[in-house]
Simulated scan of single mutants.
Amino acid sequence: MHFTKPAWVVHKDSSAKSDSTKRLSIFSVHVHPDGSRIATGGLGAKVRIWSTKPILNPASEASNKPPKSLWTLTMHTGPVLTVRWAYSGRWLASGSDDEIVMIWDLDPNSRGKVWGSDGGLETYEDEAVTWT
């Protein structure tokens, strides 16, 4: 078994008024069924999707190609307590202290906005996919 601790998998408090951004607790992490991504949820009411390529390939980490952070899903209003991928890898469920469970749909054919919203998504990945 190999152990790695990627220091860049963090949730940060973007509202902090100081130069040193405060790190926030991560409450849940789940690996995508194909191993290409991990999802994290935490105190900052966000779900973050990370690439595992920089974890598995040190050269990728040094060049930041592909990017480490792929998406930030921001529609929850309370701490995200759990994230889980479906076995197919298409859906991601997130549960929050805001008493809402969200099902995020990875649609590789869509180029639209997040379903039912005008926002809630920051994307960093070059792939033509949209979370709905």
Rank of each mutant, 00 (worst) to 15 (best):
D98R: 06
L43E: 13
T72S: 10
L92K: 00
D97G: 04
G116Y: 10
D13P: 07
N57M: 04
G95P: 10
H30W: 06
A86T: 15
I49Y: 02
V31I: 15
T132P: 08
K113W: 15
R37V: 01
I49E: 03
G41Y: 01
G120P: 02
W104M: 03
D105L: 05
M102D: 14
V101Y: 06
L73Q: 03
S63C: 01
R23Q: 10
I38F: 08
S18H: 13
R90V: 12
P6C: 02
T82D: 14
V80I: 08
F27M: 13
S28E: 10
G95Y: 05
K46H: 10
S110N: 12
M102S: 12
T72V: 14
D98V: 06
T74A: 06
G95A: 12
T52F: 04
A16D: 15
K65L: 10
R23D: 07
V80A: 00
G89I: 01
P6H: 00
T130Y: 02
I26N: 02
V80E: 03
K46M: 12
R23C: 05
G44D: 14
F3K: 11
S15M: 12
L70Q: 03
S117N: 11
E125H: 03
A39P: 11
P54V: 02
E125D: 14
V10N: 13
R90Y: 08
H32L: 03
A86Y: 10
D126G: 05
V129N: 06
I38L: 15
P79K: 01
S88V: 03
A86W: 07
N57W: 00
G42F: 03
S15T: 15
V29L: 11
T40Q: 07
F27Q: 10
I100C: 12
K53D: 00
G95D: 04
P33F: 02
K5G: 13
I55K: 03
G89E: 01
G119A: 09
